[in-house]
């Protein structure tokens, strides 16, 4: 499908993201168990799995929203700090499964908030409004407009985020995440609720992001989307990594199909038991009728 072009931002081959033995427990419940994952520069990696497999929990471990109970996460060889804003500063940006835009800010303002870590004008420079402040604001706005053009939202810069159609809200989330100039972009179900046309557009957008040198890790349920897009796919089932590999190997693996569709297990109710249950129900119905 696609081969990795050497990303301009990362000429070296250090993996962008390395997660080793990441485990997350909530009390007695182990949501994620000893998951290893590596994302190399210029790669698009997919993370799939049935609902409740722990994909989003794993994402939250990567972005510092949760501190993993065990295991380490490194970004370009350095350990990630356990605070979300520091993770973003280090170079990992994310979107959310349930869109979490700043609903009452305009489209442009949303992207400008994304620039937060890459600018440093504090309160005093805002109050004094010196030339440096104006320059920085102008640069931020230029970069934000660049991203809005990139995602096709430029004509809507002054709309409130809450008034955008659903598909555009998803795009705006991506634009906002890109505003922090990340080396790795984490997308949590970017096409959820989209129609096929919008899904195609998103696919193009993700490719374009990869071509700009940003590695992408994407959670998705839409298999066609994942297999079109990804260089590498990992499957998470019940908190554990079942397997990983190229889309082709994953697609044809029986265990993956089983995990999604289920397999008959031993002691599954056979025809005899089913007939018994039916009889009992009929009997009960008779009782109530009388």
């Amino acid at each position: 499908m696609t081969t990795t072009a050497p990303a301009p931002n990362a000429p070296d081959d250090t993996p962008v993201l390395t997660a080793t033995g990441v485990t997350m427990r909530f009390g007695g419940l182990t949501a994620v168990r000893a998951v290893d994952l590596t994302v190399n520069p210029g790669q698009i990696v997919g993370l799939i799995g049935p609902n409740g497999a722990g994909k989003t929990t794993f994402f939250n471990c990567l972005t510092g929203l949760y501190v993993p109970t065990e295991g380490t996460v490194t970004y370009r060889g350095t350990d990630l700090p356990p605070k979300p804003h520091l993770v973003t500063q280090a170079g990992i940006a994310r979107t959310f499964q349930n869109i979490r835009l700043f609903a009452n800010m305009t489209v442009l303002e949303n992207v400008l908030v994304g620039r937060h870590t890459r600018t440093k004008e504090g309160l005093f420079s805002a109050l004094l409004r010196g030339p440096a402040f104006r320059r920085a604001e102008k640069a931020s706005e230029e970069r934000a407009m660049e991203l809005l053009h990139f995602t096709g939202l430029a004509p809507k810069r002054d709309h409130l985020a809450r008034n955008l159609p659903y598909g555009e809200q998803r795009k705006l989330e991506i634009a906002r995440a890109l505003a922090s100039d990340p080396g790795l972009l984490l997308l949590d179900e970017p096409t959820a609720g989209m129609n096929p046309h919008e899904t195609r557009t998103t696919e193009q957008l993700v490719f374009a992001i990869r071509d700009q040198g940003t590695a992408v890790l994407v959670i998705e349920h839409d298999m066609r989307f994942i297999f079109n897009l990804c260089d590498h796919v990992a499957v998470l089932v019940q908190g554990e990594k079942l397997l990983e590999g190229t889309p082709r190997t994953v697609q044809s693996d029986e265990r993956v199909i089983a995990a999604y569709l289920g397999t008959p297990f031993e002691g599954a109710p056979g025809t005899e038991e089913a007939a018994e249950v039916e009889a009992a129900e009929a009997h009960a119905a008779e009782d109530t009728d009388r």
């Binding site: 605070k83 620039r115 920085a136 906002r176």
Partner: peptide
């Protein structure tokens, strides 16, 4: 001046959605 600046936008972002704001590096 404070409201219409990087720090002011960060305040509004925090008000709107604190989790998303911290995920944006605030």
């Amino acid at each position: 001046r404070a409201g219409n600046s990087r720090i002011g936008r960060a305040w509004i972002a925090i008000r709107e959605d604190e989790t998303a704001a911290t995920a944006m590096g605030i």
